[in-house]
Design a binder for these strands. Structure first.
Lengths: 191, 191, 191, 191
DNA sequence: CGCTAACCGAGACGGTACGTCATGTCTTGAC
DNA sequence: GTCAAGACATGACGTACCGTCTCGGTTAGCG
């Protein structure tokens, strides 16, 4: 199976960079397949060769950027771990990733295939971290049997709520309160 | 000041109906100013006379539909009230309003003015109900001083998370677990 | 049956002008739906509303331009009439219409529907003139019964041959020789 | 000077075959450099190595196919020779070469270099045959001094006219009428 | 026998144009 | 002034070819 000309890695970078710059400078509306091509100095077809649409481009740029490694905190207590994780997450969302995530969600809302991709490539990785924190706390005897999936929803729900509805910012206070609330909920015996 | 021809109320209904039908039958993608006009047998300009864009049409159709009255449960306990409220809310989301809300959010994500409108016309009304439940519980001595805004986020966060990310359904179990978790969190002294 | 906004006549003119200018200045290659739109300052969709493609636009611009009236010469003899007609025709072809016709033919060669349109709107009108000249000559007793369709082909064939193959120019000499040859052929009894 | 790998003759054939098949099965529109490559199972670059474009490929395939030898009829009279030549020519045009020629002309209409090539490689060869027939007739004393170039145009003009405009087929009747007309015109003293 | 050069398949790449769709504005005539 | 109809400028969509390029992998002939 002959290979043909290999893909140019520099093009991948140019596209990803263009996506981030467009979203930062002109907002999500400006992220358009045509705009990405123009901004990155790449042919439209070349963008389509990598991503089948705006949404795929956003998810692609995102995962290539942030999925490197998600630090798993270890402070000794569940509440401490959760507070540290949330603080870190809030920081990166506030720094700029938040705008990208909002754009990604806007796309997933009318493309279930993309939603599935996004959940697999991004959401589940974050949920796994919390699952691990819960398992560790349980190993320490800090919490008993519980519905971990519900607890994970409890950890991330308010964050997404504020990020997407925009009625309140992602503050450090929220991180602390949430960590405490989840720890308390984890102590409730599962039903 | 001549009055001119009065607006046709039947047109309002036709437009709203078209929005709901389009979203139900063909999904949010199909909700387009042109599509609404075609489906409702109304001129495009006539739709624009009422709503300045897709987002406004969605929010308009939504508030006209559901904002009539939000029943405030009264079971005697905070957890009971919350569970009842969440059950009702989940039911209506699952029944079809969920798809509309997802569409609305998709729009608000790139239109801050619309987001503000939506929060005022829809989100805050729901938050007010929970605020009232919390106030009642406090009056009963069930809970002490607490950060009510955080508790409201705790109530609605996981719901939006599941609705928008789509990783899990809105079950009755979630309503019960969430009510219990919020009640527990409400018992933690505010800091 | 309500009419909607009427078409802007100025737009028609702008489009036709753009077609002629493009063909004159940059050649047939530059006649592109996108180019026409850009040149005429009109939206692409507006061009498509009138013409369904490059070919239709060319034929449209052509018929609107030249089909006003084809002068029918009357010199008293068939050869004189034909020579006058051919001289006029050659003049207009050499002046610029020739380039348009070449473009039109290029299009008709891969669009039979367009070819049919072109024959009806343009070719047959010219053939009719020669048919009339032949009828007049016959009425004068100048010629006998003959296959007029063949004679018409004889009149126009060499012209198209030179125009499309480009091996020789359309000179006055050709007009004279051709007129004489056709007159001679018309005298041959039909078989 | 090392030679490198020699060209694969089978590839030449595959390309030419693809051109003819495409034109026959899907029409001239389908004759595209990419289409030729795909159809012949050859790399695009390999096609470009032989022909610099669609037009070149068409002319190439054509000359490789038909330019072997053009039979020069010899019936004893000019009219007989011309009729025989035209009959043969019409037959081959109707059989399939006509479609190729139409395609070639479409290309030459916006590529003067190609037009020049085509005239040299194809048109002139046919004209030479008629020039020879005229010379022979003159040697026999059948005709006097005349403008042979004009007579050649008279022979081929109607054929191209019908082939390219498509208003009438290339019949045997036309061959006979045309031969007679040209013979008559050849008898007119040159001016 | 190994080197060098051209060939060949595959397919990426920067382009241009295609024809379609939705946007939001406008103009007309009827009511 | 509302309404149905539909033209209009704008701009993105996703596709198709263009002609060039870079790969890896043959074939030759020349040294």
């Amino acid at each position: 199976m002959p290979a043909g000309r290999p893909r140019d890695r520099a093009v991948d970078d140019a596209i990803r960079l263009a996506v981030f710059e467009l979203i930062a400078e002109q907002g999500y509306q400006a992220v358009t397949m045509e705009g990405i091509a123009a901004r990155s100095g790449v042919a439209k077809q070349t963008v389509y060769r990598r991503y089948s649409g705006r949404g795929q481009a956003l998810v692609g740029a995102l995962t290539e950027h942030g999925a490197r490694h998600i630090p798993v905190p270890d402070t000794g207590t569940l509440a401490g771990d959760l507070a540290a994780l949330l603080r870190d997450t809030f920081d990166s969302l506030t720094a700029g990733i938040g705008a990208v995530l909002r754009a990604v969600i806007a796309e997933t809302l009318h493309d279930e295939a993309l939603a599935e991709l996004y959940r697999r490539e991004h959401v589940e990785l974050r949920r796994d971290v919390v699952r691990e924190l819960l398992a560790r706390a349980r190993a320490r005897g800090e919490i008993g049997p519980a519905d971990d999936e519900f607890l994970v929803d409890l950890v991330f729900g308010p964050m997404w709520y504020r990020l997407l509805i925009g009625h309140a910012p992602l503050t450090e206070t929220l991180a602390r309160q949430l960590a405490a609330a989840v720890a308390a909920a984890a102590a409730i015996p599962a039903d």
